[in-house]
Computed example of a mutant assay.
Amino acid sequence: MFDVVLLTLGSERDAPGGGCGSGGACCGGADDRAGDASGAKTEDRCETPRVPVLACADALTARGARVETVTARSDAEIDEVLARLDGPPRPDGLTWPDPDSKTRLVVATASDAQLRAVVRRLVRRYAPSPSRRPDDLAGNRTVPDLPAIGVLPLDPARSTTQRDLAAQLGLPRDPAAVATAVLDGTARRLDLLRNDGGSVTLDGALLGAADDSGRPLHWRGRVEVDDAVLTDGHDLLVACAIGNAGGYAHLDDVALLGTPDPTDGLVEVAVAVPVTTRSRWGRRRVRLEVRRARGRAVSVLPREGKVPFLDDGAEGELGRKRSWWTEPGAWAVWTA
């Protein structure tokens, strides 16, 4: 028999004297203040449908699971839930996940940013400091295998309108199907992007923005993937896509990323550079030149001011150099 915690991310606004700010659990907490994405939009993080949660809880209970529903309104409350996934004490004193745990976690998500908030807290809990790196940690990883998560999407329409991460991965969306995957399914391990700002990326990030009329705002920045330089900072850029999965593979009708795969241990990166050409009649035309590269790590250094971006759907501004690197197979989801 499994103990299942069905976790919903609430808002500090729901608590007495609270407010829906950058410190709330559902908006990513204070971990992302240093120039990273600080939160999902208010409508994503403050209005959580209860019907799918209750339906999933009923389906789990009918299968004999002991179910507890928890609403976390802060990082500390998320951490209290994640502590139930801890393994027995280690001789080195590190907090480590229990690979044989009989407790399973289901995260009810209104957005990919909410799912990311939970995975980031898992990383913060189980990632050892460099000075305490154990011998049993894989050489290409900074975190152990994180516990698998059941994902309960709260908005079925996102599977077709916005292609959230659950839709990209082909995860079940029906509450009863989610319950079956958590109890009877298998853990599918996925790559994780960590960054030097202390956060994580599950799907991808898109750097760049448009004005009120929809025209792209040009910016400059140096973008490197391993030893490959996609732009040295002199080119005008429309966008830079950093893909673990395929959520930011297209910009309007322009294909940015090729075939990003969240299980190949690589990050795919693309920059879109506007190039002006002339026809035989002398007419000027602007086309987008897309440069791509794949590797283990990517760095972006803005040259002028701050660059707006979306990271797993959460908004932020990048004003200094930021590096992302791949943690192969670091996190996992329960799938049928």
Rank of each mutant, 00 (worst) to 15 (best):
L6W: 07
T8K: 08
L9A: 05
S11H: 00
C20A: 15
G23K: 04
C26D: 15
C27H: 10
A37T: 02
A40D: 06
D44C: 02
D44Y: 13
T48S: 13
L54I: 08
L60V: 14
R63D: 15
R63E: 15
R66S: 15
E68W: 02
A72V: 00
I78K: 03
V81E: 04
V81N: 01
R84G: 14
L85H: 08
L85W: 11
G87P: 00
P88M: 09
P88E: 13
P91C: 05
P91F: 04
P91L: 14
L94A: 10
T103N: 07
L105P: 06
V107T: 02
D112L: 10
R116W: 02
A117R: 01
P128E: 03
D135Q: 12
R141C: 05
G150V: 09
V151E: 03
P153W: 06
D155N: 08
R158W: 01
R173G: 06
P175H: 08
T180E: 13
V182C: 07
V182E: 03
L183A: 14
G185P: 04
T186I: 09
A187S: 13
A187I: 01
L190H: 04
D191M: 02
L192Y: 06
G198L: 09
S199P: 00
L202E: 00
L202G: 02
A205N: 07
L206S: 15
L207K: 08
G208E: 05
A210R: 09
D212S: 12
H218I: 05
R222H: 11
V223E: 01
D226A: 01
A228Q: 13
A228F: 06
T231R: 01
G233C: 13
D235I: 05
V238G: 04
N244H: 07
Y248W: 03
A249Q: 15
T259G: 04
P260I: 13
D261K: 06
D261Y: 06
D264Y: 12
P274R: 10
P274T: 09
P274C: 10
T277S: 09
R280T: 14
R280W: 13
R287I: 03
R287A: 13
E289T: 11
V298T: 09
V300F: 12
L301H: 09
L301C: 05
P302E: 12
R303D: 11
R303F: 05
E304C: 00
G313Q: 02
L318T: 15
P328A: 02
A332G: 13
V333G: 03
